[in-house]
Every structure is written in structure tokens, then in C-alpha cells.
């Protein structure tokens, strides 16, 4: 198992990207856009969810309290998805796809599950998919409760010496390390 870049080259490059984001625009964040995407789908199915409002600071409000909070800033982004943060995440997907393609893609066996999962839980894809779905649910629920994820809180937060970033990282590793130690005892 080898990464394309060493930790030194990779760390410098990743740090440069996080710095460039602050220098040119604002700190990197991802998890809010899961909410925006949900909002776009929800509003497409039932258009009364997000509406224009002269009373809201952003000019938009929502019947959903979370989309309506902070002057309706999320509601506004649901109505206008062609904004920096949403396009940023679309570009993230494109950039990762390009890099993976250039290095020849992911091996067939790895596509359904990583080797470390297979070593510990066997080869049935459905088990991995059920776990991945539930994990995704918990990760995004937690990220929204925290107000950010690994990108926004842990990396962008700690690089700005934000107290919240350190609190978040403490919680994530306090849970993540014991969980991984218990679940993944075999290496291969």
C-alpha cells in the first residue's frame, strides 16, 4: 500500500492548497454542501420549502429551521447553487476524478471495499455497503452538529488556531482511534 506522494511532498502540497484558499477567498469547507444539495432536492420536490423573503437578511427563508437559520444563508444557497462553496465541492469531485484517472484508477478488488475491511470482515460487498451507508449518515449528522468536518473544522480550524478546531479534532480522534483499534485488528 503506497500513496502516490510521500508524506512530505503531500503535506506541503495539501498545506499550500489550504493556504491558497485563505489567501484568495476563505477557508476550505465541504460538509455544508451536503445540506445545500439536500435542500436543492427537497425544494425541487416541494417548492414551498425555500421561498423569497424580504424579512430575511439573505432575501430567502425556509420552512425548515436549519435552512432558515442565520438570516437564511443556506436557503439562499439552495436557490442559487452557482456560488463559490457549492462549485468548490463540484470541482473537488472533478479534481479527484482526474487524479485517479491519471494514475490508472482504483484496482477492481478495492472498488467494493478496502483491503483492511476485507481482512477483518470478509468479502461480501453488502456488509461493506450497509456499514458505509450508516457511517456516512453518522459522519454527516455529526459534522452538521459540529458545524464543520475534517476539512472545515480540523484542518481549516486548527490552521487558524480556532479553539473550535481543536475541540473538534479531540472529539474525532477520541472516538475514531478506539473504534478503529477494536474493529480492525487484522492487517491483511
Amino acid at each position: 500500500m503506497r500513496a502516490p506522494l510521500t508524506w512530505k511532498a503531500g503535506g506541503l502540497l495539501l498545506g499550500a492548497v489550504f493556504f491558497a484558499a485563505v489567501l484568495l477567498v476563505k477557508p476550505i469547507g465541504v460538509s455544508t454542501q451536503f445540506v445545500i444539495f439536500d435542500g436543492i432536492l427537497w425544494d425541487a420536490v416541494s417548492p414551498s420549502v425555500v421561498t423569497e423573503s424580504t424579512e430575511a437578511k439573505s432575501g430567502y427563508t425556509s420552512t425548515n429551521a436549519y435552512l432558515a437559520k442565520s438570516g437564511g444563508k443556506y436557503a439562499k444557497n439552495v436557490e442559487n447553487p452557482l456560488n463559490y462553496s457549492f462549485v468548490f465541492v463540484l470541482a473537488l469531485i472533478g479534481g479527484a476524478a482526474l487524479s485517479a484517472r491519471l494514475r490508472g484508477g482504483v484496482e477492481k478488488a478495492e472498488k467494493t471495499m478496502p483491503a483492511v475491511w476485507r481482512a477483518n470482515f470478509g468479502d461480501e460487498p453488502w456488509k461493506r455497503y450497509v456499514a458505509a451507508f450508516l457511517a456516512g449518515f453518522v459522519v454527516l449528522y455529526g459534522a452538521r452538529m459540529a458545524g464543520g468536518c475534517t476539512s472545515g473544522h480540523m484542518m481549516s480550524g486548527m490552521m487558524q488556531t480556532a479553539v473550535s478546531g481543536f475541540i473538534f479534532a479531540a472529539g474525532a480522534f477520541a472516538a475514531g482511534i478506539p473504534t478503529a483499534l477494536v474493529l480492525f485488528r487484522k492487517e491483511s
Binding site: L134, G136, V138, V139, Y141, A146, A172
Partner: peptide, 12 residues
Amino acid sequence: GGILLGLGFAVA
């Protein structure tokens, strides 16, 4: 929220 994220982060 960090704890919840950490749990799912480790599983997935």
C-alpha cells in the same frame, strides 16, 4: 459532533 464523525470515520 466530532465524536459522531470520528465513529463513522473509523468504520468507513
